[in-house]
Write a protein that binds this DNA or RNA. Structure first.
Lengths: 139, 139
DNA sequence: GTGCTTGCAAAGCTTTTGCAGACCA
DNA sequence: TGGTCTGCAAAAGCTTTGCAAGCAC
């Protein structure tokens, strides 16, 4: 049971990354966040963004959305809410509890796992992609 | 609206990949499936496994579990069921409806997206990892 | 015979990591 | 001052793709 318990520091980079993530409603990828952050701090590196997102997620200040198809997306809002992903363009948007019905803390009976939580992901087609059917190549 | 509608062929490779995936209960990654398949077809390549998994998923014969952290996992059972992932080792197991309560086809009201479906993923710690606390490094 | 599919290898992309210098507490 | 953090670049890991030959229909 190794609990190194590293003492984290709130560096300028870490603070900027967190503030920027919180200000964005788009659930950016690390790369997208990097592009925004570097406008204010040109010499920051992508590696630093990845390292800090990892730290922020471990400490509960950000959420890593693993449900993404290619790249991971991040969310600065750690309160309970859901996501819906466009299966065509991959965009992820928020869905808040008042808009959702039919779900009430699902439970597994006699689980072999120690259940810690759950995530609900909706899938659909966003308005933009619905207007451009040729993008919806399914082959 | 380009609908090329390619005529797929059921090659020996494709059939073996599908049959093997269906026979496995472990939600293998492409690499793991490759290792099993090559025991019966030594010259098959990893690229072929990836290409066929893609085709099988597009045609609805297999499921790609995007919820995976690093690699994609695949499931040959396309019927409605849920998954639970061990947050320590990444293992994915099935959870079937009779074991789950509190969920009844969640709906989004007045959605801007055209909602096509949803997935529910549980997270927890599997029995093996629960016994080895030092693996649960969280820093 | 047509054209989809394969094996092989190389390339592509996202993410991680080693290192020396910089910086926070 | 000590130990964490950063920028840079290289490496790692997963997945895709180009090509010529092979094979299903």
């Amino acid at each position: 049971m190794k609990e190194d318990a590293i003492k984290r520091r709130m560096t300028r980079q870490r603070r900027l990354i967190l503030e920027t993530l919180r200000s964005m409603r788009t659930h950016p990828t690390a790369e997208e966040l990097f592009q925004v952050v570097r406008q204010q701090m040109p010499r920051i590196s992508l590696g630093t963004v990845y390292r800090n997102l990892d730290v922020l997620c471990r400490s509960g200040l950000a959420l890593k959305l693993e449900s993404a198809v290619q790249q991971a997306h991040y969310d600065g809002d750690v309160g309970r809410h859901y996501h819906i992903r466009c299966v065509v363009c991959g965009k992820i948007e928020d869905v808040y509890p008042p808009e959702v019905s039919g779900i009430s803390f699902p439970r597994i009976h006699n689980p072999s796992f120690r259940v810690m939580g759950w995530t609900l992901l909706f899938e659909g087609i966003c308005p933009e992609c619905a207007e451009e059917p040729e993008m919806a190549e399914r082959n």
